[in-house]
Write a protein that binds this DNA or RNA. Structure first.
Lengths: 136, 136
DNA sequence: TTCTCTGCAAATGCTTTGCAGAGGC
DNA sequence: GCCTCTGCAAAGCATTTGCAGAGAA
């Protein structure tokens, strides 16, 4: 992400560490996952800084906030159009890069102006499905 | 909902009020919306009872918990397959009863066993779009 | 030097939990 | 009468905020 070089945001070691952790990350981490990961290198980092950086990235379209976990917000540094496959047991999230044809007739929109779309597939990941099988 | 007559759950005035409020409700209320609505008739009801009842309904498939609002969980008593149109400004949620063809090739599933799907459309409702226009 | 960013700690808001008494069945 | 449900109050988490000092530009 060469974003911070172009715009007027201060690059700090903490932010660099967060960007490094997020770059190419496909684990859809929560704020606390990010905090824990960065804490390994920067034990003094605070959650406020993590939330602060997330906010800046979100505002500039570099990070998506996902509402796919009931318990906490999850973040996705992949901001290209894609969808998600979610394990309902362990909450693992996998990207699905497929374009679906989702036409909605005008009269079903009730006057809404569409700006985006997102498909969530629910299921059991291989690991969780295995555990379920063994318990039978 | 004739559910409680068939199963072994105690029907209480509070639960009856909650069921009555939810029956046919298309507003996708939060737990607190339900609490506020019931409070009009039953000022003494507690949030714990609302959450408790929501839990029972969820466990028995009579209520869907929606993760479509960053700030709070929302609930939907319509458990027939449908999708949602969400206003990103005021968080209004409208049902979309359209069946989409969402085929996912086996190799994109990574071994997941699919159990469900849900399409979220984001946009601006007529009211919020109007406000946006006027501010220009 | 300037002004944003950081870390700490407290506050906030939603949701959960413990518990004793109330009340369906 | 039994046992679940209710209301209250406190606890639990994720997230936000206030503020003084640190540090990037």
């Amino acid at each position: 992400m060469g974003y911070f070089e172009e715009k007027k945001f201060k690059m700090t070691p903490q932010r660099a560490a967060i960007l490094g952790f997020l770059d190419g990350n496909k684990s859809h981490p929560s704020a606390d996952d990010i905090f824990e990961a960065i804490s390994v290198e920067y034990p003094m980092i605070s959650r406020a800084t993590v939330y602060n950086t997330i906010e800046v990235l979100k505002d500039n379209g570099l990070l998506w906030e996902l509402s796919i976990d009931d318990e906490r917000k999850r973040y996705d540094p992949n901001t290209n159009m894609h969808h998600h496959l979610i394990c309902t047991k362990c909450r693992k999230v996998v990207d699905i890069h497929i374009e679906f044809d989702l036409q909605v007739p005008e009269d079903a929109l009730g006057g809404f102006k569409l700006t985006g779309r997102h498909v969530e597939f629910y299921g059991l990941c291989p690991e969780c499905a295995d555990i379920g099988d063994k318990q039978k």
